[in-house]
Simulated assay, not measured.
Amino acid sequence: MIHHISIAANQPQYVAEVLAELCQGQAIGFPYHEGSYIALTFDPHGTMIEVFPQGTELKPGGEVGLSCHPQASRCNAFHAAISVSTSEAQIHQIAKREGWHVQTCDRKGFFSVIEVWVENQQLLEFLPPTFAAKYLAFSEPQSLKQFVSMITND
Rank of each mutant, 00 (worst) to 15 (best):
F111M: 07
Y14E: 06
E57S: 11
D43E: 08
E57T: 13
C105K: 07
V51H: 02
S83G: 15
H3M: 06
Y135N: 14
I49K: 01
A8R: 07
N76Q: 15
P60D: 14
L144C: 12
F138A: 14
A95R: 02
P70D: 07
C75H: 15
L40R: 06
K108N: 13
T56G: 04
N153D: 09
V84C: 08
S139Q: 15
R107N: 05
V113K: 01
F30Y: 08
Q142W: 07
Q103A: 11
P70Y: 10
H45D: 13
A20F: 00
F52G: 00
A133L: 12
R97K: 15
A20I: 01
W117I: 03
F42G: 07
C68T: 14
A39I: 03
L40Y: 03
T104D: 03
G25H: 02
E140K: 14
V18I: 12
F30D: 03
Q146W: 04
L40G: 04
G61E: 05
E21Q: 10
P60Q: 08
Q11R: 03
S139H: 15
P31F: 07
V118C: 02
V116L: 01
H79K: 09
S149R: 13
H101R: 08
A80K: 11
G29E: 10
A95V: 05
V118F: 00
A39C: 10
K96G: 06
G109N: 06
R107H: 05
P141G: 09
P53F: 07
A137G: 13
G62F: 08
V64Q: 09
A137C: 12
H3Q: 09
H3W: 11
Q90A: 09
F30R: 01
G46A: 07
R107M: 07
D106W: 04
E63Y: 14
S112C: 04
K145S: 10
I5Q: 05
T86N: 12
G25D: 02
F111P: 01
A81K: 10
K59F: 11
A39K: 01
A16D: 00
D106C: 04
E115P: 00
L144F: 10
F131A: 08
D43V: 06
F126K: 03
T56Q: 01
P128I: 05
Q26P: 04
A72T: 10
N153W: 04
G25T: 02
Q103G: 08
L58K: 07
P70S: 09
T56H: 02
E88T: 14
Q71I: 12
S73I: 12
A95K: 01
Q122S: 05
L124F: 02
N153S: 13
I91P: 06
T47G: 03
W100L: 00
A137K: 12
G35Q: 02
H92I: 13
I28E: 06
H45I: 11
S139R: 13
A132V: 09
L127F: 05
